[in-house]
Write a protein that binds this DNA or RNA. Structure first.
Lengths: 339, 339
DNA sequence: TTGAAAGCGTTACCAT
DNA sequence: ATGGTAACGCTTTCAA
């Protein structure tokens, strides 16, 4: 900056005002000099140092996104991808960069989100411990969370699927087919997550409302032998509602391997209704969760909070945003086997 | 920092040395005081400001990844996901964050990669203009590129699939099935990319070596009517080699719509051999490009360059790294229709 | 072993 | 309209 200032014959301040485009009203530079400054800056290939700028302005135009296990990224896990799509579609047009930060994602050091590098944080970890909870509520920057059911986090805006509504549709669909004994299938990791519990309870409530027996809970670890039970005539359940499409795909594979035919012997339902559902045999009935829309809306809300803070305005009081889910009926559900 | 220093009764320097973990040898702090400093820092919930730290050290522990069209992210485009997986698997354990920067990705402002926010850049845009070329070669930070065939970029390390080897396998497979008249199918965007041209030429060379006629070039825009030609008896080509799996999937759809049966009427080959290939009907024969491995290796190389620069060592002279591809034969290729 | 002080590159206040 | 100057929070050299 000093080189430019010297070359043009002005102070560094003038250069700053012209090139930062901060619209500083207290200081103005004549159009001629401004043009000359821009010209020299180009000649000298001047690149503003963002670190210095951020240090001074306390704004980085960078937002952190926190996932749980990033290694799970892949076509079987369209979730991450949908989130990334939603986030970037909101972030990029606004000129914000998105960063995936190992200190938070891998090391679990949630406090590092307040280290000055981020204007805001989008928290997409479905599971979080007390330490991250403290970090979130005492964060120096706006935080928006996804997949946290209403009433669990106070003071942090939340974007979540309407699990109750979704499960009501699931139960209605199954009941209309003739099912009565259903179970919720979940993996050991998700069962500990907030949304895992929420969906399980939602299914239970929906079943209760529909007047069918309380759904079972199957935590599916490495040992899938439990599935053999569903091949028997006195199988405890005739329909399995899975926490995710991936898990449902897993169940389908296991069924196939064990000679259990879907949906003749048992019905299977997934969650997310990703393109993955189109590729399974049979095609997977699944709850359609608008993850990309949710992520986009969450990101836009985060941006507005950042904006509020920046201007000293009170933050928007929005607490929780619930998203309707639809049930995409495909071929993995059908009437239960006659006895 | 000053608060901590005052509370403990030392200077800010002592705090810095203890908490930054920079292993400063010129200065040492007694273990007792060091412990006390750490303790007070915790009590005061001290969070080091990364911007200030970066401003001083000129290191951010952040790496930028540049894609072409991020909006294409999705299950049909496993490419981006594979790259992200490879990149993060190398970056995160090393403590580096990954950022997707709109100024480069959307606005195309390649010069912003030298704005001090990144220790290095992984360039994954298959297409690049002269301006970005200048930005890349004059970048203040190490840059590593993917998908640039050997000999095209000097001074910038490159990680690329062995397109020649891949196309040799493709041609061998097709010839062994009895094909002689083949064509390369590509979209209007990729045809202008470096790797698009490289693959086209690779196919041509491989065909020449195998002694079959020079392959045709089909640029598939919105108008897919060209495919109708392949339904006729005197079809010009009996096999289509596509630039990407997505494009091949598109071709399969068009064939289906037009009553062209694959592989009876025509053989189709994709590129990437993503999981997408398992979901198509018929399952897609495709070149298996180890994108995640390439991305991981490219990232590791970038990290080593950063390391070299940091220590003032000469940069590794590695210029180009070529990756073997395999042909995954599935059901979209078969003998050509008898006349 | 410790403290004082000089920057890092930028922005913004307060004078002229 | 313009120029000096003090921060921003941290690291690091130098002197004690």
């Amino acid at each position: 900056m000093k080189d430019i200032a010297d070359a043009v014959g002005v102070s560094t301040m003038a250069v700053s005002v012209v090139l930062s485009g901060s619209g500083n009203q207290k200081v103005s530079v004549s159009p001629a000099k401004a043009e000359r400054i821009r010209q020299v800056a180009k000649e000298l290939r001047y690149r503003p140092n963002q670190n210095a700028r951020s240090l001074k302005t306390r704004r980085t135009n960078q937002v952190a996104v926190v996932f749980q296990h990033f290694s799970e990224l892949g076509p079987e896990h369209p979730y991450h991808i949908q989130v990334l799509n939603g986030v970037t579609s909101a972030l990029f047009p606004a000129g914000y960069a998105m960063t995936l930060c190992p200190r938070i994602i891998i090391d679990g050091d949630a406090f590092s989100m307040s280290d000055g590098r981020f204007d805001g944080v989008l928290w997409c970890r479905p599971e979080f411990d007390s330490e991250s909870l403290e970090a979130i509520s005492s964060a120096g920057v706006p935080v928006v969370m996804m997949h946290v059911p209403p009433g669990l986090m106070s003071g942090v805006p939340t974007f979540c699927a309407d699990n109750d509504g979704a499960m009501r549709q699931v139960v209605q669909h199954l009941v209309s087919l003739g099912h009565e004994r259903i179970a919720f299938v979940i993996d050991p990791v998700s069962v500990k997550s907030v949304e895992g519990g929420a969906r399980n309870h939602a299914l239970t409530r929906a079943a209760q409302q529909a007047g069918i027996p309380k759904p079972g809970l199957v935590v599916l670890g490495r040992d899938h032998s439990i599935l053999t039970r569903y091949a028997e005539k006195d199988a405890p359940h005739t329909a399995l509602v899975c926490f995710s499409d991936e898990l449902a795909g897993f169940v389908l594979q296991s069924c196939d391997r064990m000679g259990v035919e879907v949906p003749r012997d048992i019905s299977v339902i997934g969650f997310d209704s990703s393109k993955f559902c189109e590729g399974t045999k049979p095609r997977l009935t699944s709850v359609n969760q608008p993850v990309d829309r949710m992520a986009q809306a969450a990101t836009n809300h985060l941006l507005s909070l950042i904006h509020d803070d920046e201007r000293g305005l009170p933050r928007s009081p929005m607490a929780c945003c619930l998203y309707d889910c639809a049930l995409d009926v495909r071929e993995s559900t059908g009437p239960p086997r006659a006895h």
